[in-house]
């Protein structure tokens, strides 16, 4: 871990300014992914802006009948919130499917959106990796790719987005609120937040330099039955091979997003229109452009079968 200076920010805008004022500054909140990466010198900030004192840790009801979740609300608190459990069950289910109790106590809503891939080549600094060291090549495409992206990747990178929470937020049409160093705020739909790798896999999201996530808002509840089926070898404390976040209505319509299979939460509103026609119909569209490796081609049938499991359970 490289040496760094450290400050505690006094307000969201001040935090954004502090991050902008120095080269190589980063915000730190829960730290559960950033410190992991700093120890390996995959992340090498020289200045950390601690945002934990900024408040931003409450969940409030919005005028639109939804929820505004502070960026510093812990995964545990968000999953346990009664309103979330009642109206956004897919979000609770997704969060508690991830990591461990200890990590969820520390991980924050904002930080969780930003967690970086678990591609083993990204994690080994001796290996070429376009995401970690642009231009060095992708070791994964012809390497150990079992856990990696079957769709949405590029010739430059097939890393997956590893999180669960954001997959649920994707089916809930969440929006991400930010503040920049000038105090300007903006709202980014979660569909636009995470970037596909293309030729620049090092660019993972829509945030600009110094821009700080302050909240995530959820629209009013859309009802339906909520599911999050996470498939993994180990029964807990493991990243998804494939996960399915779904909301299923009584008439068979609904929403679905996939985790563990792409560089971002994977949803296509036209594909989910096929939900009444079953999992195969959905996946024919949703995964039409899949380009799996030999090692991860199982994810395509697995995604379909996992959605089928969810639809079967929804029929009850």
């Amino acid at each position: 871990m490289r040496a760094f200076s450290y400050e505690r920010a006094s307000s969201p805008q001040a935090a954004a300014q502090a991050a902008m004022a120095r080269d190589n500054a980063k915000f730190i909140a829960g730290g559960t992914n950033l410190l992991d990466l700093m120890k390996l010198e995959i992340e090498t900030p020289t200045h950390l802006v601690d945002v934990n004192g900024l408040g931003l840790d409450t969940i409030e009801e919005t005028d639109a009948g939804g929820l505004r979740i502070g960026a510093l609300v812990s995964n545990t608190a968000l999953a346990a919130d009664e309103r979330v459990r009642r109206d956004y069950g897919v979000l609770t289910r997704a969060i508690v499917a991830g990591a461990s109790g200890q990590l969820r106590n520390k991980a924050t809503t904002g930080g969780n959106l930003l967690q970086r891939t678990r591609c083993p080549y990204f994690y080994d600094t001796n290996m070429p990796c376009n995401k970690r060291a642009p231009g060095t090549g992708c070791s994964a495409i012809e390497g150990f790719s079992r856990s990696l992206a079957a769709i949405g990747g590029s010739d430059f990178c097939i890393a997956t987005y590893p999180g669960d929470m954001a997959v649920a937020m994707r089916v809930l049409d969440a929006e991400i609120e930010t503040v920049d160093p000038d105090g300007e705020t903006r709202t980014i739909p979660i569909a636009d937040f995470h970037k596909l790798p293309g030729e620049t896999p090092e660019v993972e999201n829509e945030l600009r330099p110094g821009e700080l996530i302050t909240a995530v808002t959820l629209p009013a509840s859309v009802g339906g039955r909520h599911f999050y089926h996470k498939v993994r070898d180990r029964s807990s404390y493991a990243f998804a091979l494939v996960s399915v976040a779904a909301i299923v209505n009584e008439d068979g319509t609904g929403r679905v997003a996939l985790g563990g299979i792409a560089p971002k939460p994977w949803r296509d509103e036209t594909a989910e229109a096929e939900m009444p026609n079953g999992a195969s119909a959905v996946m024919r569209r949703l995964l039409a452009d899949a380009k799996p490796t030999e090692e991860n081609q199982f994810k395509v049938p697995l995604a379909e079968r996992t959605l089928a499991a969810v639809l079967s359970e929804a029929k009850g």
Binding site: P120, Y123, G143, F144, R146, D233, S236, Y237, A238
Partner: peptide, 28 residues
């Protein structure tokens, strides 16, 4: 679950940490 995956090009075990190399947890 347990497998140290070999990268046949670089000659090493790729999943060389306790997140990549899964051993059983309580729920298993």
């Amino acid at each position: 679950m347990e497998e140290m995956a070999v990268d046949h090009r670089h000659g090493f075990f790729v999943n060389h940490d306790l997140a990549g190399y899964e051993v059983p947890v309580h729920l298993d």
